[in-house]
Simulated assay, not measured.
Amino acid sequence: MIKEKDVITLLVPYPTKESALASNSHMYICEIANEGDAALIKCETFKIKFLAHPPVRSFVKEYPSIERNPFVNPTLIDCDKDFHVTGVYIPEKLLAKRRRNICDPLFSKVVEMLDDNGHESEELNPRELMVLNAAL
């Protein structure tokens, strides 16, 4: 079973099952991980265009470091919203391969940014999530 701070790779039906998040897998940090209930924070590879037009208001930019995270590229952690899913068991086979989780200081920083900026919570449709991700 996944745990808080774990990093998983998923396709997410947001805002619809035809969107970019549904067609390209992204990494997600598990903010909350209980059996059948999870809150996920999106991570994506940082791109130069983000300097001129950041895709989100509030974010943490993290560089690859096996001591801190499983990322292989500079990564933007989206602190504007998290995704909630209920009634879905997320197996460990979806964990990041280099390292299963992020370090405590990074997790604390991300949670603090979420709390400070009044983030949105988006409820995911569990059926659509399971259709997109055969491992669920």
Rank of each mutant, 00 (worst) to 15 (best):
P105A: 13
E18I: 07
K49F: 07
T45S: 08
R100G: 08
A135W: 10
F71Q: 01
I8R: 00
R99C: 08
L11E: 04
L114A: 01
E112N: 14
D115T: 12
N101I: 04
K61M: 10
K5L: 07
D37A: 11
E62I: 05
S19R: 08
Y28E: 08
M113N: 09
H26S: 15
E35V: 07
H119C: 09
S65H: 15
K97I: 13
K81Q: 15
G118A: 08
D115L: 08
A135V: 15
E4W: 01
E18M: 10
S58R: 10
M130D: 06
A38N: 02
I48D: 10
Y63Q: 12
L11W: 06
D37I: 13
V131C: 06
K42N: 10
T86W: 10
E122S: 11
N117E: 03
S23W: 08
N34A: 11
I90H: 01
C30F: 00
L94T: 13
C103I: 10
F50K: 05
S25Q: 12
F50A: 03
P54W: 03
I102T: 07
A96D: 02
C79L: 05
N101W: 02
A20D: 15
T86P: 03
P70F: 00
K49I: 11
V12W: 01
E4C: 13
L95H: 00
K93N: 14
I8V: 15
N101R: 08
P13G: 05
S108R: 12
L94M: 10
E112I: 09
P126R: 01
L40C: 03
V111P: 01
V56T: 06
V12G: 00
L129K: 02
L136M: 14
A20L: 15
P126L: 05
N101S: 09
A33T: 03
L95E: 02
M130R: 13
I90A: 02
K17P: 06
D82P: 01
P15V: 04
E120G: 05
I48P: 14
S108C: 14
A134T: 13
A134V: 12
V60R: 05
L95T: 03
P13Y: 01
Y89G: 04
I29F: 00
P105Y: 10
V111K: 07
V88C: 08
K61L: 14
I32V: 15
M1T: 15
D6F: 00
L51P: 06
K5T: 12
S25A: 13
R100Q: 09
P91I: 04
R99I: 07
T75Q: 04
P55I: 05
G118S: 13
I48R: 12
R127C: 12
K109F: 06
F83V: 05
I8G: 01
D104W: 03
R100E: 09
K42I: 11
K47G: 09
L129Q: 04
A96I: 07
L11R: 12
F59W: 06
P105H: 11
L21K: 07
V131T: 11
Y14Q: 04
C30M: 07
D37F: 14
D115R: 14
S58D: 14
D37T: 12
L51N: 10
L76Y: 07
N24P: 03
R98V: 14
K3P: 00
F50P: 03
K3H: 07
T45N: 08
S121I: 15
P126A: 06
V131G: 02
N117Q: 04
Y63L: 11
